[in-house]
Structures are given as C-alpha cells and as structure tokens.
Design a protein around this nucleic acid. Structure first.
Lengths: 342, 342
DNA sequence: TTGTAGGCGTTATCAC
DNA sequence: GTGATAACGCCTACAA
C-alpha cells in the first residue's frame, strides 16, 4: 500500500549523525551548528520528509487542534462564523476538527467524546436545540481543556462565552415595529430552552410592556425554524386567524425571507398589512422585495473573536478564565419590509 | 495544568492484569474472557478512561481522519456539501479536518501540507480559483493517499472526481433563455481556468451555436463573482452599454440575486427587459421577486456521495481507482425571472 | 485466554 | 554542539 515513511532516523543515518540532532535542526533549535542544520534541512526536503504529527503530539502532549461542534453546518450564519474561526486558527497553526450535532444532545455528546479522544487543545461549541445537561462536557472541564461557547451558550457552565445581547436585539426589533405602528406583533422563534431565543423573547416582551402593549401568548410561536415549520405555522394557523397580526418579528433571515414569500402569495401586503423584521443580516434579507429589516449579527467577526481569544489563551498570552463573556455589537437595520411610516 | 491521563496501564494495574488484555478488551477483541472484559470496561468508564488517539494512530498508522480543503467555507453551496460529507463521515467514525484556501494556490498548498503531516487517510478538495499546478498534491499521490476532487476538479490528475455535467447545465440554461426569445445573452461567470466555469461557458457557446446565434466575446464577463465584482461590472459596464442584453446567465444564485436587485434598482424590468437564470438552486433564488430560474445542483447529495465513495474505499469494500468520475444529475428549474412567454 | 516485549516517530533530559 | 536514551500510550506478534 503506502510507501514506508521517511523518518528522522533515515536522515540521521544518511548523514551519520544522531536523530536527536536532526530533530533539533528541524525545529530550529538554537543549539545546532549552522552547517549541520543546513545539511539536515536540505536532505530532509530532498527526501520529502514530513514530520509525523502523531508521534510529535504524543510526545508533546499537545495537538494544535481545536474541536468545533455546531448544530448544523449549512446555514449562512454558521458558515460565516466557521470561516472566521478557521481563518484565525489556521494562521496561528491550529487545525480544526468540525462536526455537527444535528440539533440533538445525543450526537453532540458523541462528537464531544470523539473530540476529547482526539485530545483537542480546546473545544468551541454552539449548543443543539435539545441539549439539556452538560455531562458530555465534564471530561473537558476535569482536564482543564478550555471550552468556548458561542451564540447558543450554557449559562450553567463557567466557561468563556462569545455572543450578542439577544435581549437588547429582541427589544430593538420589537420596538422598531411598534414605532412603525404595529400593535399586534407575531413572534416566530426557535426552541426557548436556548438563550438566544429566550433572551430575544424577553426583549420582545419588555418592548411590548414598555409601550403599553399587552403580551399575548398566542402571538408567540416556537418551532425549529425550518421551511416546513414556517410554512405550516403560517398556512395552517396564522393566515387562518380572524385578525392578522400587523407585525412579524422572526428570528432568522432565511425564515423571514421564506415567510415573506408565503405571505405575499397569500395576498398579504408587506409592510402595509404586516411589517416584517428578521435576524442576522444574511444576504438573503437584502435581495427580497421588499428588502427585509433585520438585526446585523457579525458572524465573521464572532468567529475571529472566538479563535483569537482561544489562541491567545493556548499560547499563554492571556488567561481565558478572566474573560467570561464577550458581547459583540449588533445593529438594527431598517429596510422596506418594516417601513410603514416615512 | 491538566490532570494526568488515565491509560490502559492504570487500568491494568488496578485489576492486576496486563495492559495487553485491557487493550484487547477495550477493542472488543474476541479472545478475551467475558468476565475480565466486563471488569475492564466497567473500571474504564468509572475512571473516565479515554483512549489516546495519537498513540493509537501512531501505532496503527491510520488516523480515521479525512482532510477537506475548500475555497471558502461561507457559501450556501459549500456548506451544504460539507454538511453531507460530515454526516456520512461522522457516522462511519471518521473525523474531518477542514480548511479554506481563500481561492489561492499558496494557501491551498500550505493546507495540503498540514493535512499531509497530520496523516489524513484521504483528501477531499475543491480547487482554488488560481491553482495552476498540482505539486502540492504530489506527496499524497506518492504515498497512495486517496484524493477526491469535487466541483472544481483537476482534469490533469488521475483521481476520483465528483461533479456535475457543467457543459450540459450551461447548455440547458442558455437554451432555455434562447427559447424564451433572448438574442443577446450576457454570461457572468468565474475564473475560466476552472472546469466548472469553463465547461459552462462551452455549454453556453454550443447552445448559441446550435440556435444560430453568433458568439460575442463582449457578452462574457469573468470575475470572482463577489458582490463587489457584480456591482462593478453591471454599473460600470453593462448598464452603460448602448444596447442592453436581453438575457443573463450568471453562474451562482447569490450573484444572480444580487444582480437582480441592482438591475431592478436601475429600472431594468425582469424578465421583460432582461431574463435571468442563476445556478445552484439556493434558497435565495426562490425568495427573490421575481423568483430566479436556476440549475438545481444537489450539494448535500454531492457531499454524501463523496464521503460514501471514500469510506467504502478506505474500508476496503471497493476500490476507488476503478471509479474515476461520478456525475451527479442536475435539473433546470424555471421560475419567473426567465419566463418571457407563457 | 492472557502476558511479554518491542516498536510506531518524536522530543526532552542528560551526559559528554 | 552532539549523542544516547528514555519516555509518550497503544497495539500486536509471539509465547505461555
């Protein structure tokens, strides 16, 4: 099958020196004669020598690998975050092992286990919809392997978290609709176990309250935000109601865009009949007609922030334990889907 | 810092047996007494034993890790493919190391090097825009490590490729516009070094030719398909031309959607003044107004196919060398952006 | 069924 | 500045 590997011993032998010296030369260890070093490096590249990370990791007890567990890979937001993480991590010489929980705790736990067995130097995680306890992270905590949560975080665990102020964002979005004259604002959101959705809901409630609008439970719909779920709740519920809500705050842009097409199909005028605001500021929200108002959520920057913090910590340049929570800035972006007034 | 690891030796010692037996028990080796095995497994989980993959990999010369290099993580298409790959690979017990080339050969080569040093069992790659030679893949080829190309493939290398029939798709898209009455079809596409764009262009040319339309080089624009590039070529070139093209075939849906908004802003009526067809069938093409016609390109299925082929090969259940090219099916999806006739 | 022993490729610690 | 040597944790002939 595969050819035999070239090792430092092969190089040592050909050069009649010891493997130790070869190893040192290849790592730029200062205590090695410049000439011997050159001979070693030259021969190594001539032979196509490739250091074996496993042996090295085994010996050094460090892997230069970071594990990442996300609910799903295929969302615009997630891939932007990952892109940011990868960029910074890669530049710092770290590898990324990425896996998906598919929104279940079971898979999340299994993946965490694998990451652990692979001795990742750190774990970056955004929780699945249905993760309720955190046993699967215990091995990391015990061994003092840093964990960073992002977006969907666990308040119960004392680890660094990178996220946005979901309460404030929810408040802003709702307040904006109210300022535009909405009195009955439908809120379609994800699983309320997760901080992101729960905090946004609380922001929504507070905004209503501050503006003298009574909270109505019927106006809050929680589902998995899939196209199917959106279609289902609109067609089989909302659109059949006697009185249509005059505003919609829906916590993801793809969902908002999809809802918009369904509403338009059903003859609902946006924003006149119903004003809409989404979440994330994906490209999709800009190209709809009308363009959808949203909350700008800087995924790329979030990814880069996560990776920077982590790598500074791993390199011993800062201690992650002093940085418990990083809140990134969000902005309200107003477009035509919510503009009832001038 | 970190606690000391629990190894098979710790377990062996406590149980007064040999590490070899522990090792065997933990791998479900048949030749081990059921009772001893139970004692071992129980103690292992009690102690929170975690096998050290490095030692194991080093010993077994197999990593159960697959390297993936993609141009960029943050596109709907790419994340769908990755999601498919991850799903299948993970279920088969393989890890994924993922990195981005950011469309440069330099970074691609560097990442390939890292993957190699990490002794990935296989490499999955979609080429960067500007990759012109394949030296950086030589070490894989020499060592007989399987490489699978997808989407943006290298014809020059004898490796398995998973892709669509870009020529046919380009032909179909163009033909459709012609059937709708377009006579001057603008084609905005990516770097023509890459098969995906070059093949689509050839399909475009052939469709023109078959329908008696003369190929006009001014109607083909090749850039990096970024928002900036799209905006630039439309505003500073196309929209300033004396005669506007009456059709647009643009090889990605996000670009198509973005182009649509720019054209609408400029007062161009779609499809009346200009019919548009995109590529990929991302959600974004459905939510625009008018909805954008496109070529359905099954990313998820592509990812799953890639991973299945690879894993069957790695498990020795089939030989990848007999499967040189896999072509996935695409479909023309007609929506309002290109419907000039009923 | 279990134990012994050697080695996977690298690096760190001593000596010299 | 260089070399010997002993780990790192696991796996697998081979022997018992």
């Amino acid at each position: 099958m595969s050819q035999k590997e070239i090792t430092i011993y092969d190089i040592a032998e050909k050069l009649k020196i010891s493997a130790a010296t070869v190893s040192r030369a290849l790592q730029n260890h200062p205590a090695v004669n410049a000439k011997t070093k050159k001979r070693i490096v030259d021969l190594a590249s001539e032979l196509g020598y490739q250091s074996n990370k496993f042996a090295s990791n085994l010996r050094k007890q460090k892997t230069h690998t970071i594990g990442v567990i996300v609910p799903r890979l295929n969302s615009a937001f997630m891939s932007t975050v990952l892109s940011g993480i990868e960029k910074v991590a890669n530049n710092a010489g770290y590898n990324l092992i990425i896996s998906q929980s598919f929104e279940t705790q079971e898979k999340e736990a299994k993946n965490a286990q694998t990451m652990f067995n692979n001795r990742v130097d750190a774990l970056i995680i955004s929780l699945a919809y249905d993760t309720k306890d955190y046993k699967h992270l215990n091995s990391f905590i015990k061994k003092n392997i840093p964990i960073i949560f992002f977006d969907r975080v666990a308040d119960e665990i004392d680890a660094t978290k990178v996220l946005i102020d979901n309460f404030k964002a929810g408040y802003q979005a709702t307040e904006h609709l109210i300022h535009q004259g909405c009195k009955e604002i439908l809120h379609i959101t994800g699983n309320l176990i997760r901080n992101v959705y729960n905090d946004r809901l609380n922001g929504y409630k507070k905004a209503l309250d501050d503006n003298g609008i009574k909270y109505d439970q019927k106006l809050v719909i929680s589902n998995d935000l899939s196209e199917k779920a959106i279609e289902d709740c609109l067609k089989n519920d909302v659109l059949k109601r006697q009185k249509l809500p005059d505003g919609l705050f829906i916590t993801s842009d793809p969902s908002a865009a999809y809802a918009l097409t369904i509403l338009k199909e059903a003859g609902v005028k946006v924003p006149e009949d119903m004003a809409i605001i989404g979440f994330n500021n994906d490209l999709i929200s800009r190209v709809c007609e009308p363009a959808i108002s949203t909350i700008n959520y800087p995924g790329n920057q979030m990814g880069e922030t996560i990776a920077s913090i982590l790598i500074n910590h791993l390199n011993g340049e800062s201690d992650i334990n002093y940085m418990n929570t990083v809140i990134l800035k969000t902005d309200l972006i107003v477009r035509n889907s919510s503009l009832k007034k001038e």
